Simulated assay, not measured.
Amino acid sequence: MDSQELQELSVNNQSAIVPIAPEGFKSGFVAIVGRPNVGKSTLMNHLIGQKIAITSPVAQTTRNRLQGILTTSEAQIIFVDTPGIHKPHHELGKLLVQNAKTAIKSVDLVLFVVDSSTDAGTGDHFIFNILKHLSVPVILGLNKVDLQPKNYQFIDDSYADLIADTDWSTVKFSATTGVGTEQLQQALIENLESGPYYYPPDLVTDQPERFIIAELIREQILLHTRQEIPHSVAITIEKMEETPKITKINAAINIERSSQKGIIIGKKGSMLKTIGTAARKQIQKLISGGVYLELFVKVEPQWRQSRIRLAEFGYQVEE
């Protein structure tokens, strides 16, 4: 590639080469919105071909506005995986919903993901009423088609009725099996305008490595403790040392109540060991060389209710 066809961009404080987009190339920012646990993070991971967003059977997994980057020969799509829009019950919840609404206002296209294994509910109607006033295109994505019952027509009809007075297009797919995701990807590209490369073609996220590592640890806590420690946990990477052969990571698991400490640690440290082993395997896929992960537990009472603690743990209001 000719040097005149390249430009330099700073990504995570490092210079990276970004090509000049050819004629007809499309690009833009796409917000993935929907109720908690409809498969938004699973979908983004599938589309970009790499795990950058954590997933969990427990609703309300996504917290930060995570950006995943999909680059093809004809387009670059920057996905904004927003927290599930819901009725908040604490300061963290209020912040997440506010940040999701902010994300919607600053993108080129919105993908409204719903769970097509069940008919449209009050949560879907609530989000629809937020989105219907937008000036940018909206695509309704009916996820989980692999879980639809045999008599699914009434479900599809409920969503058709929901968007009847709009010009939104609809795509059915399964983020888990991949069925229909190629058609979804093409629909997204068709709704984007011509634009430049915003990031280097080989980049899959704009988030720093420490953030992804902290999220992978939090995912394992959600998976192994389920309802006992739903979402009152935050991870901070206290120390990270990298050598050519091994990366040593010290991470704190911050919880709200002393009673939760025993659940996280488990009998003779068994749960903490299980979480650490599973998280290390996921982290190993992210970075080269060996990984040494040390976890310890800290009690931070009512951190989800404190704006100061929220900021310390990386949760801030986005303008």
Rank of each mutant, 00 (worst) to 15 (best):
I139D: 00
P149W: 10
I163C: 11
L147S: 08
G123C: 03
K144A: 11
G123T: 13
Q153G: 03
F154E: 13
S135P: 02
D146I: 14
H133E: 10
D157L: 10
G123L: 08
S158R: 02
V138Y: 01
L131A: 09
I155H: 00
I163F: 06
Q148D: 14
D146V: 07
T122S: 14
A160N: 12
I155M: 01
W168S: 13
L140W: 01
D146A: 15
D156E: 08
S158N: 00
L131I: 01
I139C: 03
F154D: 02
P149N: 12
D167Y: 03
F154G: 09
L134I: 13
Q153W: 09
A160T: 12
V138E: 02
A160H: 09
P137S: 05
H133K: 10
Q148S: 14
F128S: 08
Q148N: 08
V145L: 13
I130N: 08
P149A: 12
L142H: 09
D124A: 04
G123K: 01
I130T: 00
S158Y: 00
Y159S: 02
D156P: 03
D157Y: 06
W168H: 11
D124Q: 01
K144C: 12
L131S: 07
K150G: 15
D124F: 07
Y152C: 06
P137K: 11
V136G: 04
N129M: 12
I155Y: 00
D165W: 07
L142R: 13
H133N: 13
W168L: 06
K132R: 15
L134A: 11
F128G: 06
G123Q: 10
G141W: 04
H125A: 15
G141I: 02
L142G: 03
T122V: 15
F128N: 05
F126D: 08
F126Y: 12
D146F: 14
V138C: 01
H133C: 09
P137H: 12
L140H: 01
V136T: 02
F126W: 10
D156L: 12
H133D: 15
Y152T: 05
I139H: 04
H125T: 06
T122M: 15
A164I: 10
D124L: 03
L142K: 08
H125P: 04
H125C: 11
I127F: 03
D161S: 06
L140R: 03
P137R: 11
G141D: 02
D146R: 10
D167A: 12
N151Q: 09
A164E: 12
I155R: 01
A160P: 04
T166C: 07
K132A: 05
F126K: 04
F154S: 08
N129F: 10
I130D: 05
K150D: 08
V136R: 03
G141R: 03
P149I: 07
I130Y: 04
F154C: 08
G141Q: 06
F126T: 07
D161P: 14
I127A: 05
Q148Y: 13
I163Y: 03
S135E: 11
G141A: 10
T166N: 11
I163R: 04
D161K: 08
Q153H: 04
T166V: 07
K150Q: 15
H133Q: 14
V145A: 09
F126E: 09
L162F: 04
T122R: 15
L147T: 09
I130K: 06
G141L: 11
L140V: 01
N151M: 13
I163G: 09
